[in-house]
Design a protein around this nucleic acid. Sequence first.
DNA 1: CATGTCACG
DNA 2: ACGTACGTGACATGA
Length: 532
Amino acid sequence: MERDWVLAQMKPWLEDPLAKKLGQNLKYDMHVFGNYQIQVQGVDHDTLLESYVLESHLSHSMDNLAQRHLGIKTIQYEEVCGKGVHQIGFDQVDLKTATEYAAEDADITLRLHHHLWPQLERMPSLRYVYEQIEMPAMRVLGIMESNGITIDREKLAIQGQEVGKKLLVLEKEIHQLAGQPFNIQSPKQIGEILFGQLQLPIVKKTPSGAPSTDEEVLQKLAEDFPLPARILDYRSLAKLMSTYIEKLPRMINPKTGRVHTNYAQAVAVTGRLASNDPNLQNIPVRTEEGRRIREAFVPQAGYRLVSADYSQIELRIMAHIAEDENLLAAFKAGKDIHQATAAEIFAIPLEQVSSEQRRYAKVINFGLIYGMSAYGLAGNLKIERAAAQQYIAKYFERYPGVAQYMERTRQEARELGYVQTVFGRRLWLAEIQSPNGPRRQAAERAAINAPMQGTAADLIKMAMISVDAKLQEKAMRSQMIMQVHDELVFEVADDEIDDLTQLVRDAMLNVAQLAVPLEVDIGVGENWDEAH
DNA sequence: CATGTCACG
DNA sequence: ACGTACGTGACATGA
């Protein structure tokens, strides 16, 4: 077969670590060659990652990059293969056209590299992020994608039966309460029933002006009426059913028997990963019903799942960046940080903090990470704006370093047009100078959040690189299989559990020396839920 | 294809 | 007077 002959010719070069390669999104190409038992070596540069590190907020598609940096309009895939129902496979394209398209692809990639790499090369911090974080992370992500995870389809099938029955019962009840059948999955029809026919009060409107029927609204209406509560129950079960219970089994690769997500490395502007097809970073956990989905994430025989997650990573990073003495001291003393915050805000001893006060402090701590306003905090705590303002003032009084950090970050963002993480990753803020108030304020909140979210992303990527190196070095059978922002999941051979947990904890804790101690929680189980 | 909603950190 | 927590992906509906 011609393909086999071509691959055989290319294999020695592709696998030669001294033969340097560059490409656009090489993680993908490496998978393609991997499917033909070719382990690509000598990967030197990737223009997707070059562009991402330089300008994470812009598009990194080759079309866009060519237009933006080279002023070239590339041949569109649709021009070659057509689109929609008329589209043909690339193998159906005549050789001359296919050659021109493919050759342009290679040509543009090289020219983009010649344009982007010099820019990276002269900026030490960005070069560090590219060379020491993103490029090595690409390889690790490719391995994790190939590893995949086993999904217990029988377990999901049983759950599907149960949830399906509950949905039917709820549907009947809801139609009864509404006095007529309607599509419960249609916000529009829910609105017509609740606000038209039943004349319930409109709580808030969607951006387009229609009465909202979201969770917060239905929760509020459920205080006085029976129907909204049922719709909420129906919605949450329908979500579980369509997005997880029915979807995950369909995503099992017939060749490997496992589910292989794609980790998008150049999508999130803050430096985080994104996961898609399927998204394994939004598997339910917050409710009992939802958590059962995680019971279907299982190890192969003779293995267990191990989950390792950073505790309070973003608040620790905030303490580090802000250099706030009080916050640093709380972390160094190993305090429950929300309790400690409550004690400060309410000016009471630690032991006297009530669970309600701790809950308030927790919301405030989250708000800080998100660049909250008094309005936002008030909305979240359902209190008066003035009261929210009081809490914020009290917090900043007790943690003046944090207050200074917030102001410093806004100012820096305004002056430079970007903010950066501890390791030098940059996030550009296009609207930080906008005359449009709300848009500018949104940019300010993003500016405050990005260094914390982004530094956390840097840290866990570096930890992944370090863990992967140790797994290779020790030739362990255990594998890293998932990343969920502050959590790493491993499929661990039974006799490697002690070794691996120690190795992972060590790698995650010592990936960098911050002014605060890091903390890692590790669990082991027969499924993802148990490991948590 | 936009909109609304909701799953996660 | 206004509209506000940060970052993602996926589903169903309905134009």
